[in-house]
């Protein structure tokens, strides 16, 4: 075998190995989706069924018999609400910091990041206590506030990085023309930063959507999100595999697609901008 052939063969093996690993990693998800189209009997059949007549029964039943829609709406409201609130606070701040960087800017950003390191369980009791006292316990408003604060440091840091990439000359030119700060943000900065803001929002939505600690601890029925709803299926063993799979598939599908779309921005966001 020549060197070239050997190289070629090695490559071939690597590609086959890559496909096998990918299939192994994806298998649990594939199996969940497949199970959601089985009847409950088929779902627990031994040997496991790969070929069967698919049914949509589970999907119609969870809409009719459970409060699936309510929990889905709660997830949407809290994820989008938390993200919107975080952006509302972060955009002006990140903008001001990026274009008027001062001696303390870096320290402020690093301090903000450090608040993200506070483990949720460390402040469980006070938050629980405050939620009860203010009557916000088990409300969507509470989760919106917590999710916004939880993601604010990351959102600030990514937006700061995006705003930094806007050439300063453009802004200086517009300032010479006497544009007001409000118009400057609206007409020049926002159009340029739009992509960055959208992908920041996407990352924040993903993090809120999959958040499990606060949604389990701070809600009982009214404001429970899909993560908490899915957690409520933990008890009855074995009986509802197909229905749980249907709920899970619906709950995960939008976020997995979001994740695929935002791969690059995710790397930046998840590493706090340290890997680009």
């Amino acid at each position: 075998m020549t060197d070239k052939q050997r190289e070629h063969l090695k490559n071939r093996i690597a590609v086959v190995a890559a496909w096998i690993v990918a299939c192994l990693f994806f298998f649990p998800i594939f199996w969940m989706v497949l199970t959601s189209f089985k009847t409950e009997g088929q779902a627990i059949a031994i040997p496991p069924l790969l070929v069967f007549e698919p049914t949509l029964e589970n999907y119609t039943e969870i809409q009719e018999r459970t409060n699936y829609t309510k929990f889905a709406i709660n997830s949407i409201v809290t994820a989008f609400g938390g993200t919107a609130l975080a952006l509302l606070i972060a955009i002006p701040s990140a903008y001001a910091m990026a274009f008027n960087t001062g001696r303390w800017t870096k320290d402020i950003l690093m301090w903000m990041l450090s608040t993200k390191m506070l483990p949720a369980v460390g402040v469980l009791m006070p938050i629980y206590f405050l939620a009860q006292k203010t009557g916000l316990y088990d409300t969507k408003g509470l989760l919106v506030i917590i999710y916004a604060l939880m993601n604010l440091p990351i959102v600030m840091l990514i937006l700061f990085n995006y705003f930094r990439e806007i050439p300063k000359e453009i802004l200086e030119a517009s300032r010479m023309d006497g544009t007001s700060t409000y118009n400057e943000i609206r007409q020049i900065v926002m159009p340029l930063a739009w992509g960055g803001i959208a992908s920041t929002a996407l990352l924040s939505i993903i993090l809120c959507w999959n958040e499990a600690f606060w949604s389990i601890v701070l809600t009982t029925t009214d404001a429970s999100t899909l993560t908490a709803f899915v957690a409520s299926f933990q008890a009855p063993e074995g009986l509802f595999w197909a229905k749980v799979s249907a709920v899970s598939t619906l709950a995960c599908a939008p976020i997995v697609v979001f994740g695929w779309l935002a791969q690059k921005q995710l790397v930046q966001g998840l590493t706090f901008g340290a890997v680009k």
Binding site: V21, A22, C23, F25, F26, P28, I29, W31, M32, T35, I44, A45, I46, I206, W209, N210, A212, L226, T227, A228, V230, A231, F233, Q234, E237, G238, W241, V244, S245, S248, A251, C252, I255, V256, F258, G259, W260, Q263
Partner: peptide, 26 residues
């Protein structure tokens, strides 16, 4: 396919493993 598991919510992933993969009977 490789990065998808990261986007599955933790409660869902726990239930997939607990029920459909690790259950000692089914």
């Amino acid at each position: 396919m490789l990065i998808s598991p990261f986007f599955i919510m933790p409660t869902v992933s726990a239930l997939i493993w607990k029920n459909m993969l690790m259950d000692p009977n089914n």
